[in-house]
Structures are given as C-alpha cells and as structure tokens.
Design a protein around this nucleic acid. Structure first.
Length: 799
DNA sequence: CTACAACCAGTTTTT
DNA sequence: CTGGTTGTAG
C-alpha cells in the first residue's frame, strides 16, 4: 500500500484560511531587515541569496508560516522542495514549531524525488507504467545495465557497467530522454570511443544502451531515481491539462538549495511556476559543490533572466562565524569568476585568526590534530574547554579519514565518521530487503536474482541462466520461470531441490503476508530464518558476521514503525539514512561535502595540498570549472567554523601505499594574510618525529624549516621555490622497508625454509616448492600456495 | 560450483 | 594499501 493518499494531499485543507488571517505574527520579530523582506515578498519570483550562516532556514520557514498565517495559501497549496530528507524533516519541524501546532496537511513539503513519486503514481499510465511501479537502487540499475551489455556482447573489461550507467544518469540529469538521445545515434558525442574497431560486435552508442535500459525498466514496471524527475517533466511537457492542473494547485513554490538543481529539476520548477511565477528560490552560488552529479550553478546565476522582475534579496549578515573566519573565506571565494556577489559580515567580536600549519607528513598531521583536539577538550591558552561534539575534521576525500581514525584509536579519542556506508546500503540489509521484495511482489526479478543463490544454494551461473531463459521464453517472472524449469527437470541435484525449497518458501511467505494473524515483523523473522539467510551469517566465521546479524536485528526492529512490509519498502526506497547516535561526546570526521549545512565551534581542515585539494582529477576533468567548484568547497569548509578554524597541509603523504610529496594548496595563497596566523610545526623542536628518526636524515630542506622561518611570508616566492624543490626531490621513504626485492627469474632458486615476503600475505617461510609455485607458511595469513614471482626474498634474520 | 589467488583501479554522494 | 572483480584449479 502506498503511503500516499490523494485525498489527503489535495482536498483536506485542515487549516481554514480565514481562521488564520487575523493571527499575530511573532515569527517576524526575530528577523533582520533582509530576512524580513524575503519573507514578506510573497507574490512573484523571489531569489533569496543566502550566504553561509545567514539564517536561511529561519527565513524560509518564516515565509511558509507567513503564507499560512496570512491566509494567502492553504497548507496543501504550497510546494516546498528540498534535496535531502533531512532538510525536509527539519523544515517540517521548524514550521510546526513556529506555527505552534503540528503541520497537518503540508503534503507537498518534501524532496524533489519524494514529490515526484507522488505525482508519478497518479499519472503512471502517461509514462507507460503502472502506478505500483518500483524504484530501483544502484545495485538493481547496474544489474540491468550488465544484462544489456552481456546481451550486446559488449566487452565489459573495456567499458564497464558503471561507465554506461554514469552516462545514462548524466542524460537524465540533463532531462534528455532515451528517444531523444537515441535519435542522434552515431552522430553524437556519446558514441563509444574505439568501439567499431574493437571487433566485439558492439559498434553503437551509449544511446542504444540507454534505449534498451529504458525499455527494460518499462517491462519491469520500474523506474530509477533519475526517471522520477524525467517522467514527470515529460508528462508536463506532453499533457498540458495535467500541467495546468498542478500549476493551479501549487500556488506558491519554495525551493531550497537552488544552486544544486540539475537541468531536469530546473525544468520541472519552471514548468510549474510558468503561470503564476510565485516561486521563491533560496540558495548560495558560492556553495554549489555538486556539479559532478549534475548540479548547474547556471540555474541560480540565471534566475533574474528566467524570471524577469525577480525580487532579489541578499542575506549577508552572518550569525555563525567570527570576522577572521569570514575574512579568510571571502578571500578564497573572491578568486571565482561569475559570482552573483555577496559579502558576509558579522557583529561578532574579532575572535582568533584562522590558523595555518604545515607538517612533514600525513601521519604527523593526524598526530598534531589529535593532540590539538585533546588540548582543546581540556581547555588551553585561556580557552574554555571545548566539547568533542563541537569539533570536526573535514577532509576532501574519504581515504584521508583513515589516518585520523588510526591515530584516534591509538590515543583513545572518541570519534564518529559521518557519511559512511549507510545502513540500508549494507549488503545484509539489501539482501534481506530483496527477500521482502520478492515476497511482496513476486514479479520483482531483480530482487529474485539477488537472493536466488544467497545464501549459496548450489545455483550458479548455469542454473540461473536456465531460469532466465525459461522465464523469457514463457513470458513470465523469474520466480515462475524457476518453477517451470524445475518442473521440467532442467535443474537437477542439490541445486534443484534447494530451488524448490526456495520457491515453496516464497509462495508460503506471500500467503502469510496476506494472513491477518501474522504480523509483518514475525513474517520478516520467518523469512530470514527459513530462507537460511540468518543461518548463513551465524555460520560465517569472519569478524564482520556478528555485526551483520546485529544489523539484521535492527532492520526487523525498524519494521515496527510500519504497517506492513510494502509500506516499509516504499519508505526505504526513498529514505536511505540512518543516524542513530549514542554514547558520549565524539569528534566528527567527515568529507567537506557531508559538512555542508553543518557548523562547529572548532573545525580542522587537513590535507590542503595541490592535487588533493584542489583535487587533481577535478581540474583535469573540468578545468577552470572544476577548480572553481573546489574553491567553493574550500569556502564551504572554512565557513563551517564558528570560532576556530585550523587549516593544515603535509609535505609528504602516503597515497595508495606510495609516498608522494606535494605543494601546499593554491587556496592557501588565497587566504588573506591579515586573517591568518601561521603556526610553527612541532617536529623541528624535538620529540615530534619519535622513533622514525627522519628529522635527522632530512633536516634542512624540510619545508617545515622554511615554514617556521617564513612565518609571515608563507606565500612568498621563496616559500614557493622551496616547496617546488622539496617536491622535485624524491623523498626517501620515512619508514624503511627492510626486505629487498629480488628478481626471481634471475635468482630462480628458492630453498625450503627460506624466509620470504608477499605483497598481500606478509612474511612467511617456504615449506614446499613445485615448479614455479611455492607453498609458504605465512605468519599472519596461514599456509598458501603462491606463484614464485609474487614473493620476494626477505633479508630479515630468519627465525 | 566454489574457493582462492591474481589483477586492477582508485573524489566528492543524494535520492 | 585495499576492496572488488575476474580467472582458474580442484
């Protein structure tokens, strides 16, 4: 059953407009003049340019409340769109808070996707779908692409499923339908490079795959996330009556984070606002950091052209950060061209300068930050103690997190990583949900495919192929196909009997789902139990297994909030977050992207090195555009800080196991000196390097020495030259490896008992030799057979 | 069909 | 380095 109730959404305005008209307006009291202007300008197009920390959400919610309170609009006449469920939730809460009552019937406050699901369910037939269509997750999408590629005999080593999916999604972000893309077949830029010459038989374009992908989706009665927008836009474009209807219904439109809209979302909004033009877009062009997934900064930059006569309000008074922090941030962002232009200011006292510190390597950086966090927690240099909850470490790329995790575990500093793999993305959760999906809708082939041999039932590629073929030949679902194949005796042995067990189980569970005397929670437990899925993890001896069982329990617990399995699945397909938080205070570690919208009294920004931040890949792939987005990311990072912002970089860093040296980020040069204090790194003055002892080996040309000497001129030419010199000189690896790699073709003789080293398994002793294969007893990894060329002799003292 | 070793690629992430 | 995928031996 869908959670969406039409009547509720459109008809039952629970708050009478007239009854509200004369109410007082306390929500206007706490607003500054600009915020107030943005709230009061209810009619016509409004662009609210809201800088970081300028009370954007406050103004936005006040605007909604004002619409309601003055009787200008009823709750169900307001379309309020956000990007994330979190933002939608917060807005809902704040509106209720301001209104002093729960918001009954604001059915159109939600994410783009959630709102589009509602719309598309109403008009599914106009998109060639049934209204109970399913929404695919990334796994399903890839499985689908893979099927198409295999059918087309595409060499998947050369062009991966991900590559195709990426392109398809890019098309969808730009609202380009398969028909349209396919029509340009062969002439367009989407032609697969080198395909014709490859001899794989696949000589066509991404457009062809896109077309087939859409065809399959329709056959499956399914959509992906991109489709939710694209289908609705297409319906609006081709059915004027439908569009008109919604233009009348949604009398007032509000959009949060407008700088993150993609072309499809932009078109969707323009269509809906075309008639009355009561659209209020809120955003900050300086915080557009999602270009790589289709966001178009151009949308916000063009607003006044799109909506002539638009009322533009700038929120520039910042309530979050100190002047030094704002000064540093605006210094950096001023390097970008084509901004709408904003200057943040604050009434806050001067505060501390942004601190800048360079380190010898990434480990020292982590060590220093760990110490600093502890010191701040204790309260140092006249500062009051800072709670760990109030500190955050914001990195450019998630692999930077490991250094901090390692260090914090060593010193026992509690931390939390935000934005890791989310609950519903974990393998065991997806498996379990795939079971639920097949039980609730037996036609869900993708889900069936996922679980048919999970846990292992002896149904490998061959058996699965038979099922596929049988299903296709008879035009039935995979479950049905499996039944037919078994009946025809095509799947024999253990696999056959296991398959029968599975099919019978599915049928039985489906019946239970309809039975009134079994709760869906019991049903879920029965499914997981009888399918053998729980047992599979109980028998698993790997260290993750207990955690996975724990997660499954949590999943079952989460079911309690829903009436039935369908309701749960519907919810999960749209809401994929899970932030259960317990325990004491912790430092947060997260990416800069994940930090957008958050704020912390103390922020650390490590890894400001050219190539890492700004990311080389961004610059290579998107040139100046890429660099500008990176710069906005820097701006976002700095403006997360309320009181103390510490930027750091390391001269050397281990990347994919290799040591690499780099120059300080070009963004460091862009920090205005008057807002920055350069700290002296600890390493030079004893102690810092500990056992590594490389301070002696690499004394003078260390960038740190220069850093200390040039405390006031870190961006001087001298500093630059020195950095360039340091990076040209290959740094010797700080931690010496003591095993020597020996060319085995040259040496070719191994002896039993000899000590060797293997990349993956570590150290071990040879206990057997067969031709070019060695049997090695590894110290940590046990006894393995390895090819001789993969081990090297170790000159460690044999034990 | 499964298990294990070899190979390979490797930002950012929401819905 | 590391995790995910592919290829091959049992």
């Amino acid at each position: 059953m869908s959670s969406f109730d039409e009547a509720d959404a459109f008809e039952s305005a629970s708050l009478s407009a007239r009854a509200m008209a004369a109410r007082p307006q306390p929500y206007l009291e706490g607003l500054n003049p600009e915020q107030r202007a943005a709230v009061l300008a209810l009619e016509g197009p409004v662009l609210m340019l809201a800088g970081a920390g300028t009370g954007k959400t406050k103004a936005l919610t006040a605007r909604i409340v004002h619409l309601l309170n003055t009787g200008t609009a009823r709750p169900n006449e307001i379309l309020a769109v956000t990007f994330t469920n979190k933002a939608a939730r917060e807005m809902k809460n704040r509106v209720s808070g301001m209104l002093g009552q729960t918001v009954e019937g604001m059915p159109w406050l939600g994410t783009f996707h959630a709102i589009c699901v509602k719309l598309l369910r109403r008009h599914a037939e106009l998109a060639g779908l049934k209204s109970n269509f399913t929404i695919l997750d990334t796994d399903d999408q890839l499985r689908l692409v893979r099927q198409i590629l295999d059918a087309e005999k595409v060499d998947r080593k050369k062009w991966t499923d991900r590559w195709f999916l990426l392109h398809i999604e890019n098309y969808k972000n730009r609202a380009e339908s398969a028909e349209r893309v396919g029509a340009g077949n062969g002439k367009r830029a989407d032609r697969i490079p080198g395909a014709a010459a490859d001899g794989t038989g696949f000589q066509r374009s991404v457009g062809d795959v896109y077309i087939q992908y859409q065809t399959r989706l329709r056959e499956l009665n399914a959509v992906d996330f991109g489709d939710l927008l694209l289908h609705v836009v297409t319906i609006f474009q081709t059915h004027e009556d439908v569009l008109k209807q919604y233009q009348r219904w949604f009398r007032y439109i509000l959009v949060d984070e407008y700088q993150d809209t993609n072309v499809a979302q932009y078109m969707w909004l323009r269509l809906l606002a075309a008639d009355h033009k009561n659209i209020c877009c809120v955003g900050d062009d300086d915080q557009s950091i999602y270009g790589w997934r289709g966001a178009e900064v151009g949308n916000i930059l063009r607003f006044e052209k799109d909506f002539p006569g638009a009322h533009v309000v700038r929120l520039e008074q910042n309530y979050r950060s100190t002047p030094h922090i704002l000064g540093a941030a605006s210094g950096v962002i001023s390097g970008n061209k084509g901004r709408l232009g904003k200057e943040l200011w604050t009434e806050a006292g001067e505060g501390e300068k942004v601190r800048l510190i360079g380190h010898w390597d990434g480990e020292e950086e982590a060590r220093w930050i760990g110490d600093e966090v502890e010191a701040m927690q204790r309260g140092t240099r006249g500062h009051a103690p800072v709670s760990l909850d109030d500190m955050a470490i914001l990195v450019r790329a998630s692999h930077q997190m490991r250094a901090f995790e390692d260090r914090f575990l060593t010193i026992g500093l509690p931390y939390r990583v935000i934005g890791g793999p989310r609950f519903y993305e974990r393998m065991e959760i997806r498996d379990a949900m795939a079971y639920f999906r097949v039980v609730t809708s037996p036609d869900d082939d993708l889900a069936f495919e996922r679980i048919v041999n999970t846990p292992k039932r002896g149904l490998g590629d061959k058996a699965q192929q038979i099922i596929q073929v049988t299903a296709r030949e008879n035009g039935v679902s995979l479950v049905e196909g499996a039944r037919l194949a078994v009946d025809a005796g095509q799947i024999k042995g253990k696999g056959g009997s296991e398959l029968v067990k599975l099919i019978d189980g599915l049928a039985r569970w489906s019946r239970m789902a309809d039975a009134p005397d079994i709760s869906h929670i019991e049903l879920a437990e029965i499914i997981l139990d009888e399918s053998g899925y729980t047992g599979h993890w109980q028998n698993d001896k790997t260290p993750e297994a207990p955690g996975r069982l724990e997660n499954l329990k949590e999943l079952v617990k989460a079911l309690e909030q829903f009436e039935n399995l369908q309701g749960f699945l519907e919810h999960v397909s749209l809401i994929m977050d899970n932030e259960s938080e317990e325990g004491g205070a912790k430092v947060s570690i997260m990416t800069l992207h994940a930090a957008k919208g958050l704020e912390f009294p103390a922020v650390f920004l490590p890894g400001w090195e050219d190539g890492l931040f700004p990311s080389q890949r961004s610059m290579d792939e998107s040139g100046v555009k890429g660099l500008e987005e990176e710069r906005r990311l820097a701006y976002v990072g700095i403006t997360r800080a309320e009181e103390l912002c510490t930027i750091s970089f390391a001269a050397n860093r281990r990347v994919y196991g290799q040591w690499q040296s780099s120059m300080p980020s070009r963004f460091i040069d862009e920090l205005p000196q008057k807002h920055v204090e350069v700290l002296t790194p600890p390493g030079l003055y004893g102690g810092g390097y500990g056992a590594a002892g490389m301070a002696q080996e690499q004394p003078v040309h260390s960038s740190l020495a220069e850093n200390a000497a040039q405390a006031d001129g870190y961006n001087s030419p001298g500093w630059r030259r020195l950095q360039a010199r340091a990076s040209q000189r290959p740094m010797s690896q700080p931690k010496e490896t003591r095993n020597t790699v020996i060319d085995l073709q040259a040496v070719s003789s191994f002896m039993i008992g000899e000590r060797v080293f293997h990349q993956k398994f570590g150290y071990g002793a040879i206990i057997g030799i067969e031709g070019d294969k060695l049997e090695v007893a590894f110290e940590k990894a046990g006894t393995k057979k390895v090819v001789a060329s993969f081990v090297s002799a170790s000159d460690d003292i044999p034990f």
